[in-house]
Design a protein around this nucleic acid. Sequence first.
DNA 1: ACTCCTTGGGTTTTT
DNA 2: CCCAAGGAGT
Length: 787
Amino acid sequence: MILDDLNTEQRNAVTQTEGPTMIIAGAGSGKTRTLTYRIAYLMQQGVSPYNIMALTFTNKAAREMQERIVQLVGVNAKGLLMGTFHSIFAKILRIDGERIGYSRNFTIYDDDDSKKLIVDIVKSLNLDDKNYKKGRILSRISNAKCALFSPEDYAKRSDLIALDEQQHIPLLYKVYDIYQRRLRQAMAMDFDDILFNMNVLLRDCPDVKEKYQKRFQYILVDEYQDTNYSQYLIIKKLAEYYKNICVVGDDAQSIYSFRGASISNILNFNKDYPNARTFKLEQNYRSTKNIINAANSVIAKNERQIKKTIWTNNKEGDFVHFRTLSSDREEASWISDKIKELLDTGEKGGEVAILYRTNSQSRSFEDSLRLKNIPYIIYGGTSFYSRKEIKDAIAYLRLVVNNDDDEAFERIINYPARGIGQTTMDKLKIARETLGISLYKVAFTLSYDNPFNINTKAINTLRDFCTMIQSFSLRVEKDDAFTLGEEIIKRSGLRTTLATLRELEDKDRLENLDEFISGLQSFVENNEENIIDALTGEEIDITNKTLDVFLQQISLMTSTDTQEEEDNSQVKLMTIHAAKGLEFNNVFVVGLEENLFPSTMAFAARDDIEEERRLFYVAITRARKILYLTSAQMRYRYGDTTFTEPSRFVQEIDPKYLVYDKQEEESTLPRFVFNNRTKEKPILSLRHNALTEKKQKPQLNLSKPYSTLGNKTNLTPKSKPTIEDGEWRLADIEEVESNLTVKHSKFGIGIVLYTEIVAGDKRAKVDFGSQGERMLILKFAKLQVRK
DNA sequence: ACTCCTTGGGTTTTT
DNA sequence: CCCAAGGAGT
C-alpha cells in the first residue's frame, strides 16, 4: 500500500481528497511526494486520470512528477493532464481558441519577439526610447495582463496612467493597445496572453467553461505561492463546479513576484474557500538540524508569512560555513579547491551545487573548474533554442505554420539575403499599417503599381519568397515535421548559407542547425508509449507529428528544459531560482554581498527585500549536509572592479549555527587579479590599459601595408600628383588595370593591386600606403583615376 | 544592401 | 563586461 511511505500529516493530505485543500509544505517536507501520492491515490480510488489536472510551473517539475506517478501506478496514468500552466492552457486554446478569434495555428511570441515588437511600436509612435525602454514597457504590459487589465481597462485606470506620467511614459497605454493589436494581427500570443485569453475564453464561452469544469473533477496546483492573479482566476473558475481543488505551496518560497506572482493567493486561500482544509507539512527530511535552524532564523525576519515551524529528526550536522574571499576569482578558486576535496572523499559531482543570484556570476566558476579539471554543467543561461541560427530556422517553420507571424517574417525575409533591405521593409510596414493585414499578406498581394513605391524588383522577390513559403504551408498537415522541416531549412538556403561560411563559429552553427534537424527527426520518430495527447485523449501517431505540433512543444521550452543526459559526475551550476525544488548534499551559495544578493533592485520596497530573503531561504534549504556561504570583497562587475559589503543575510543567520571560516591575511600584499578574458593584464591597471590601447589602435595600420606590397615597384604614393593636377576623373571606366594610380577622398593616393568581380560587383584591392590596403567596391567607392 | 566598428546602455530572477 | 543599435565604410 502506497500510504505506508507517508507520515501522518502527509497521509491525511493524500487521503482527504474531497473539497478545497491547501497543503502548506515547508522546504524538504516531501511536498512533491505528497502531491504525486495524492494523484496516485485518487486513481487507486477509481478516479479516471482523464478527470485529473495537475499544474506545475516548470516543464521539468511536470516531467518529474509524471515519471513518479508512472512509477507508482504504471500505465494507468495514461490520460492524466499534467503540465505547466502555459502548456496546458495553450493546448486548450488551440482547441477552443477559435471561439475568441484565434486560429489553432497561433504562434507564441517569446520574449525576444515581444521586445522587438515593442521597439517597433515605440519607433512608429516617435516616442523617445530613453524613457520608453523595451524591458520596462514589456514588464509593465506583462503586469497589466497578469492583473487582467486589457488595454481598454488600462486606459481607464487613472491611477496607472498617473503612475506612467510620473515615470515619463504617459503613452504606455497606447503602446499596450497597439502591441495587443499587432499580436492579434500576427495571430500570435505572448506568454501572458495564454493566461489572459484562457480567462477570456472561460468568461465568454460558458459552454467551454462547463466542458472543462466537468472534465477536471480534481485539480492540483503545485507551487501555488507563485501563481499570479490571472492564473489564480483560471483555477478558481475551473474548480467552481466540483471544488476539488488542492493547492500545494510554501509562502516562504515565493520568489516570482517580479513576474506578477502574488503571495496573497496562498495567504487568502481560506477566504476564497472558507471550508478549506489546511495541512501543514513541517517535518523536514532533507537537511541537518543546523541547516534547518539557520534557515528558520533567516526567514523569521519576514513579516508576511504563514506561521509554521520546520523541524527535523536528522542529525545536528556540520555548522553552516561562511567565508569571505578577496575577490570573485578567489571565491571561485577557493570553492573549486573545496569541491576537489569533496570529490576526493568520494562525493559525486552531481551532489555538489554552486548557486548564485545572477547568471553572469557563473563565468568565474566555469573558468576555475575547468582549470582544475572538475566536470561541471551549467543549468540555464542561453538555451539551445535561443541561438541565432536556431531562431532563424524556427522563424521559417513558424512562418510556414502561421503566415501572419510578422516577427518571423521580418527576421527571415532577408536572411539569406534576397535584396530586401531596410527601405523595402519600411515601405512594407507602412503598407501593413494602411491595409491592416500582416506583412506576408502585404508581400503576397501587392501589385506592381502599388501606392507604397515598392519597386518591381522587390515585389518579384517578395512574391517568390511568399510562393515558397506557401508551398510549404500547404504541406503542414500532410507531411511530418521532420520531412517538411528539413526541406524548409535546406530549400530556404538557410543551411547552404551557413555551410559556405568559413569562420570557426560558423562550423558550430552548422552543427547546431543539423542538431536541430535531428531534433525534428527524433520528435517524429520517438514513439514512446506516453505520447498521447492528454487533453483530447488522442493517441499521437507519426502522422500527427506535424510541424505545428512540434512548434507548440518547443515554444514553451526554456533553457532548463533542454534535456541532457543526467551525468552524476558533474558539479551543477545554476541560479537559485533554477534550483528551486532541487536538493544536493553539498551546496555553495556564492556572492553574498550587498547589491548583489540582496540585489540593488530590491531596495525600493520592503516587499522586495522580503522576497530576496525568501530566495536566500530557498538557497539554504537546498542543502542536505554541507552548506557553504561565500562572499568576495572585490568583484569584477560591468568591466569594473567594485568593492563590496557582506550581505545582510549572513548576519541574519543565528550565529549559533554559523561558523565564520578564517580568512587568510593576504590583503596587504600586492595582488594581481587577472581578468577572465585577457589573462595577461592585471585587473588594477586594466582601465588604464584599455584606454591607451584604444588610442593606439589606429596606428596599428600604419605599419602594415609595405610588407604586403611584395616586390612591386613604382608604388610609392607620395610622389604622385595631387588634387590640383586636374588629370583625375570618376571611376566609371570599363577596365581598371593593376598599378593604376587612384585617389580616394578619405584614404588619399593609392595603387590598384588587382581587381576582381565578386557577386556581380567589380572590386579593386588598393594599397594606400600608410592607410593600408583596402578592398573597394567600385560602384560605391568615390575614386578618381588617372587616365 | 551588407559589414564592421564604435558607442552607449544595462544587467535579477523565467513561463 | 556584454549586448544591441547606429554610423560609416564598402
